[in-house]
Design a protein around this nucleic acid. Structure first.
Lengths: 230, 230
DNA sequence: GTCTATAGTTCGATAGAC
DNA sequence: GTCTATCGAACTATAGAC
């Protein structure tokens, strides 16, 4: 539960209900009931449904990004004066998110669904919150990927970053699809198993991008102009 | 618009509104207004909001899966008596979906958001519709991947399939994130560019999975038992 | 801080005329 | 098949007692 007060209890309940039903499908009544409080109390603490949602995102994003930043900083310090290897960068990127989704103590099991919906949503709220909470750390990791794999173009580093989180996040959102498609043979449910499969996949994919020529002349031109005006 | 009648007009409108607002956030009134009809007419044609949603999914899934099946059949016939190469299998898997998302004539631009939410949703409706419409074709492609790359375990083929669609689908859902993170330098908007980046990434990732030992002894055991009782 | 009561709106769905 | 009118339920948010 990790409820250290009414406010935290409401945030926990809201996270679960938002994850299960989406923003529009979640009702303040359902959140209040799950939190064990009355509905108007949520408005007292968080003002509106919109602000409550933003605060749910903010709490977890702050946690995850703190860990991501610390992991990358530690990696750079550890490898100095050389650069951290690609595998270590990808692990530092993914581990905090995957661990949050699999640690019952921290109660973030439901955040996965939220953040997947957030990252893929085309509504104004999703795009704004994603950019606000995840773009700064994304830029740092895109640079780290490029430092570890200098042959990669900037455009491909952006793609690779997006591919990496596209692979990792849905695995936190437990849909049971892997178990369904493998008739129960595969249902990756521990952090190390997930990392042991996703990290080699992603790193090999990134190296393949670096080895495969850029797709269009137009992008190469844009790419070159960006680099020249740096 | 591709509206060949009221029914199709309602389906088109519903697809857009569901994609923009989610199931719960979409109102029958908003769908009716976009379709240019009155709200009760939707109930006349589709009975309930639930059935309308299912029909929206069914229409596009039928289209995509027909193309995926035809592409795989053609590939197998073309390569016979040998097996189709891995790259060709992945292209056959991804092209129908990506083309649907980028062909204005077919009006499927909004289906991407829907199907991403569907595949990652943990609510009962999402899981049921995903399994119903996409598991059969998924099993065929998982087998095709394994035929093209026999060193791959069945569990890793399932993972690889899920990774592949996890990478490809979000690119149809135009969130503008790639453009945002690359300051406008990258905004993959044509089918060939997307395929030229995702296919090498995915195929290299799959080959890396095949070359990297299975993660846990437990899974290897489960895996072996499954194969023996085949 | 937490509660009861409720205002004001919007929803899915139906009845019934044409 | 398509419309107008409307029911009953559920929603967000606020007022105000304690």
């Amino acid at each position: 539960m990790a409820a250290e007060g009414t406010r935290a209890a409401i945030l926990d309940a809201a996270e679960t209900v938002f994850a299960e039903a989406g923003f529009a499908g979640a009702s303040m009544r359902a959140i209040a009931q799950r939190a064990g409080v009355n509905q108007p109390l949520i408005h007292y603490h968080f003002e509106s449904k919109d602000r409550l949602y933003a605060e749910v995102i903010n709490r977890r994003a702050g946690d995850i990004n703190g860990r991501r930043t610390a992991a990358l900083d530690a990696l750079i310090a550890e490898a100095a004066p050389k650069n951290p290897p690609l595998e270590a960068v990808i692990i530092a990127l993914l581990r905090p998110t995957i661990e949050l989704g699999h640690d019952p103590e921290r109660g973030g099991q439901h955040y996965a669904n939220l953040v997947v919906a957030l990252g893929n949503g085309t509504d104004e709220r999703s795009i704004r919150l994603t950019a606000e909470h995840y773009n700064p750390i994304a830029r740092r990791y895109i640079e780290a990927i490029r430092t570890a794999l200098p042959r990669l173009s900037h455009a491909d580093a952006v793609r690779g970053y997006l591919y990496a989180i596209s692979i990792a996040l849905p695995q936190m959102a437990r849909t049971g699809r892997a178990a369904s498609l493998s008739d129960g043979g595969t249902d990756d449910s521990d952090v190390e198993t997930i990392l042991s499969r996703t990290v080699p996949f992603i790193c090999a994919g990134l190296r393949a991008l670096a080895d495969t020529p850029a797709p269009s002349q137009k992008e190469q031109t844009i790419q070159r102009e960006k680099e020249e005006t740096r």
